[in-house]
Write a protein that binds this DNA or RNA. Structure first.
Lengths: 192, 192
DNA sequence: GGGCTATGAATGAACG
DNA sequence: CGTTCATTCATAGCCC
């Protein structure tokens, strides 16, 4: 997951048998996919012309299938391609906005900044979420679950643990919890 | 277009290898949690070996506490880790569904298809959704699995489930997929 | 050859 | 949960 060592794709045999003239990605190294000019053109066509940004799985597969005419390609390549392009375009936009604001622009903000709908550029990092402070993820919605903010004085049974545990960052001190123990905590006593 | 500046060739092994045994901050410049090798190993062990997919809050807490021996970690990290791994593995499995290449519309896209080799991607499975974008490679560690309580499936964390439909086809039927088809695949009624 | 840039790939985090 | 966003890692390719 975190390891960068990419597992060698075992299928390092038939790469691109197509002896096309202009669609050879230069080097059929098994490493990372590089779109052929044709593939790229088609992808861009889909993205820009058709405004396809997040293709559904079905679309991904169809696109992939179609693009295989022009060279080897896998579904994940298509997926990543769209995702990357989208992300990077958006990031550029965001960057631009920040620059614009930081640079000189000063939009007409009324002294009364009550219009919160106005999307002022927050120079924040982008973390719009309020996880950090003390946590409390409250993720699984739809269930009962109260917002803990300080400390629940009763046995919580829900999903508030997520962020609320900031226990000692120090380890190796005696707190030897075994995996078995963890696993055995299925029917953990709810202290009830 | 984007900035990226990192050490080109990292050791790739222990990222934190330095002085401290197991609980070094690992990475200096990031806000987001990155599992240490030890943490990762244990998490994977829990996931694959023990088939733990959706830990309860109590388990999350215990796991978190245990993992703190190896580095800074919070409950939400554990929570997200499991959720992500589960979701991504599921994507890959779900990916098996293929598109029904029904309409063989031929379009004149691209360079007049100079590649006369009509690769055939004949996948008439006619099914439903399937994510097509995530053939991640997780270095599969031990796969021996034990039944804890629920039955662990066979963790076939291969890697190219998604990119399964590569150019493998050598023979040919002519299954030209058009972009129109791709784009029209939205309301693709499969519930026939 | 060595750095730089564009971009593929991975994954933590979060949304609906 | 499935999907999407954001950030980072790693590498192909180009320029010097």
């Amino acid at each position: 997951m975190e390891l960068q060592a990419q597992q060698p794709t075992e299928e390092g045999g038939s790469i691109q048998a197509a002896g096309s003239s202009a669609n050879t990605p230069i080097r059929p190294t098994n490493n990372r996919w590089t779109p052929t000019p044709d593939q790229l053109r088609i992808l861009q066509e889909l993205y820009y012309d058709r405004a396809l940004r997040s293709p559904t799985p079905e679309q991904i597969q169809e696109i992939c299938l179609y693009l295989q005419q022009y060279g080897q390609i896998e579904g994940k390549n298509v997926f990543f391609w769209f995702q990357n392009l989208k992300a990077r375009e958006r990031q550029k936009l965001r960057e631009f906005r920040n620059v614009r604001v930081g640079g000189s622009l000063d939009l007409n903000f009324g002294p009364t900044s009550s219009t919160s709908t106005d999307r002022s550029i927050d120079l924040n990092f982008g973390s719009r979420v309020g996880y950090g402070a003390d946590g409390s993820i409250m993720e699984q919605r739809g269930e009962y679950h109260q917002e803990i903010e300080t400390l629940p004085l009763f046995p919580m049974h829900g999903e508030d643990i997520l962020g609320n545990m900031k226990t000692t960052s120090e380890g190796g001190s005696g707190s030897r919890i075994s995996l078995e123990l963890i696993l055995n905590s299925y029917g953990d006593a709810d202290m009830a």
